[in-house]
Nucleic acid binder design. Structure first.
Lengths: 194, 194
DNA sequence: CGACTATGTTGTCAATGGAAACACCTGATG
DNA sequence: CATCAGGTGTTTCCATTGACAACATAGTCG
């Protein structure tokens, strides 16, 4: 063993990465600052320099999660071609897939903890936010989506996807139903159901 | 002070009640077995007789939550008169109100913790389950809801409500939008939107 | 060279969940 | 009535955890 340097160098990033993994494998409850420190090979108090608080770590995770989710939805959208239904479906699928893979993280992202505060969260979720808004207004212009306040529609769409994710990750809806639920959702919103 | 008897008498019920209150006021994180024991005026190990585990307590809370939610939705449905839209709206409102009042509890109920196990959860949620199913099949018979697998429609409806609740309790949707979202949901499902 | 600051380390505390061993009650049974 | 078995509560103990304070180290910049 080369004796590791006194300074880790990028502890913050290492902690976040390890935390994300643990979160995926053991959920929020299983996330311990001390354990993260151990895995990073640093002392138990080191993380404190980067995260004042356990909650601060969770917040940072949520922020990173929003960034990633936003990217993935954007990417799905960009690769979905011209057809509006296909775009909507692609976005929904990306969302639900993220939820399935990182259920605990999504829970964290939508936890009420950071509700009122004007932190970095809003900024991180902006990418996702605008992706959804674009999709909505585009659909409304094309007449594929019902008219009305686009903000409300956006909320409703996100709510539905969020709910589907919750149902799936809680096991209250069988995983195999995911595609069917997405199909129904798209149909519901685009009124293409006869 | 009369010295309290060696046996509390109904510790389990007392613990659950206290836990529900704490859950409402401080969320899941703030729920400590030892604290509950203190409030019940009992030694810190006493709860163990009734809940093997912290998780066991949470499960019991979730179960009770499902029972109550089921009752409340049923009651709303029963008092909503004949009009189908009104019934749907009443049920949705009851659901969302529950979510607003007991956000942490709902989170617990839909947490993945008890996913696979054939515990008492399914039984407790049956009342809610059947209420939703009745509502759906009734709407489909009347032609107010779109045709198709009622099970899928049920999942989709619950998902949407669940999502609305999540958005509201996370502060990502303003509380004032609750009614508007419910209205939109009813419209979306009943296709009465124009 | 000599602070200054960021980043880690050690040591310590109180609270917590969990477990074992023991004490008290109550009700069923003979 | 006597007793005894099981349910319920108590004490005591342990390992883990988040938080904090005091100190160490290492680059940076005057």
């Amino acid at each position: 063993m080369t004796d590791r340097p006194y300074h880790h160098g990028r502890l913050r990033a290492a902690l976040l990465a390890a935390a994300e993994r643990t979160l995926r494998e053991q959920g929020t409850e299983g996330l311990s600052l001390r354990d993260l420190a151990r895995r990073a090979g640093v002392s138990h108090a080191a993380p404190r320099r980067h995260f004042a608080d356990r909650q601060a770590l969770l917040d940072a995770l949520a922020e990173a999660g929003f960034a990633r989710l936003g990217d993935e939805v954007r990417a799905a959208l960009d690769g979905a071609g011209e057809d509006y239904d296909a775009q909507l479906r692609a976005a929904a699928t990306a969302y639900v897939r993220f939820a399935a893979r990182d259920a605990a993280l999504l829970e964290l992202m939508f936890s009420a903890k950071n509700a009122g505060q004007p932190g970095a969260l809003p900024e991180a979720s902006e990418r996702l936010f605008t992706a959804a808004s674009d999709l909505i207004s585009q659909g409304q212009r094309a007449g594929t989506l019902p008219p009305g306040d686009p903000e409300r529609l956006r909320l409703l769409l996100i709510a539905t996807l969020q709910g589907i994710a919750a149902l799936l990750t809680s096991g209250r809806a069988p995983a195999g139903q995911a595609d069917a639920l997405i199909t129904d959702t798209v149909a519901l919103f685009t009124r293409s159901q006869r």
